[in-house]
Design a protein around this nucleic acid. Structure first.
Lengths: 252, 252
DNA sequence: CGTTCTAGAGAACAGTGTTCGCGTACACCG
DNA sequence: CGGTGTACGCGAACACTGTTCTCTAGAACG
């Protein structure tokens, strides 16, 4: 959270402060009027500045919004890491549920930022190459750590995926493993991708309003899917369904 | 595709023609510059019209874009229904694969429209209530029909979901079944929601560039996940993995 | 034929992102 | 401490945008 050292002069510190103020003001507008409603002029107005003054800190509006998205992803990663550390280490299903619930909670508390990250960015066009903005990798890393430790503990046996993977796909998963320097076998990575897909798919449908309106207890459905996907990945430890009350029904 | 009858006067026909021309011009801009890059003035310019003239046909820019989204959804529904009808009726896994592949193909051929539908709509803010714009229901209906027929054929036994559903959740699923007038039991609807989540989650991650770059053969991963989710829902019929070449690796 | 109404033009307003040139006050260095 | 450079902010300007008026030519209808 806090910066590591203070290698900055007073000048630099003020500069970083104004950058933060700009981003915070923009975030407020983001929450109020959505991604398209973030206006440089409005930000400047709220700060008592001239529009052109903002160009000392961001070269364009798109860069500002990209910075917001990067910050959002980092915030999500922080939340996930915290949830991971707080969750019980011995109950892998429970920890998985806690982490994914934290994910969902974050997405509800930062709807616009979530849409900024996972929806079209509100920018002119979508950035084709996913810049691995650090937050991305950290976030998925937490999810994958849940899987990896469950595998290591012998509670998940992803060997059933072996038959489903083509040789080429297996090779690419191996390559990916080498890139990210983790120790999960290709079958485990396939499992990781499945749970990550399921998690993201659910929240995406929920936040964009595509879940059936009859479902009011969305949290219960979420828990069901998150625990079910774990079971379907070969998890063999104890699972307590209907665990604890869910705080969030529907957003708003 | 074609209109049912011709209850329109000549005047009305011309009007519909210009509406179509406006939408097509806007679609071109959508593909080129993204959702945020659709400009009423540019559309008017391309058509040799005055900006204000467009307001005879759409009350605002947002309404134009909403119309584009609705059309997109309808187009997706058409594609899915066609794929469903063309697929073999006896091999449910195969049909499921064909339908989901058609879904993916459509999303690749209509990236911007997909993002318009499932990402933030490029509008000022996201419409909180998902207006059931007909295309939505038709699209998911096709997916659910795949499941329903597999259940009816005795090839899917979703009873294992029974233990995962809370009583409240089960009641809401019953309610939803009554709303949509289908015959799928609550456990089957839970299965439907899982496959729908998995499918949408995958495409959303892929299109927004969040899949690991090492995966080049995205189509193979897609097939694997789509068949796997079917198995995880209790499908017990024959499944042939590595079925046929996939035409699409990565978009672009 | 006369009336009605519609498609479109054209101007105007408020707002936007972005660029450029000009001061000025502050941080740094000799 | 005094001079100097530079980062900062201002203000005007340009080229856009969505949207709303008023007004007119012309087609459709009775």
């Amino acid at each position: 959270m806090a910066s590591v050292t203070q290698p900055v002069s007073r000048r630099e510190r003020l500069r970083l402060a104004t950058i933060d103020e700009i981003k915070q003001t923009a975030r407020d507008q983001l929450d109020e009027h959505g991604a398209a409603g973030v206006s440089l002029r409005a930000v400047a107005r709220a700060m008592g500045l001239t529009p052109s003054a903002l160009y000392r800190y961001f070269t364009s509006r798109d860069e500002l919004i990209a910075a917001l998205a990067a910050d959002g992803f980092a915030s999500l990663a922080d939340t996930l890491e915290e949830a991971f550390d707080l969750a019980p280490r011995d109950n892998h299903a429970r920890r998985w549920l806690e982490v994914t619930r934290a994910y969902r909670r974050w997405s509800h508390e930062h709807v616009t930022e979530y849409m900024l990250i996972f929806g079209t960015l509100g920018l002119g066009y979508t950035p084709p190459a996913s810049q691995p903005c650090d937050g991305t990798e950290r976030s998925v890393a937490v999810l994958f750590r849940c899987m990896a430790e469950a595998i290591d503990a012998g509670l998940i046996d992803p060997s059933r995926f072996a038959a489903e993977l083509t040789p080429a796909l297996r090779a690419e998963l191996e390559e990916w493993r080498a890139d990210t320097r983790n120790t999960i076998p290709p079958e485990g990575l396939a499992a990781c991708l499945i749970v990550w897909t399921q998690l993201h798919g659910f929240l995406s449908l929920e936040l964009f309003g595509h879940l059936p309106p009859a479902i009011r207890d969305v949290g219960a459905l979420f828990d069901q899917q998150m625990l079910d996907v774990l079971l379907r990945c070969g998890y063999q430890g104890p699972v307590d369904f209907v665990p604890g009350r869910q705080e969030h029904g529907r957003p708003e």
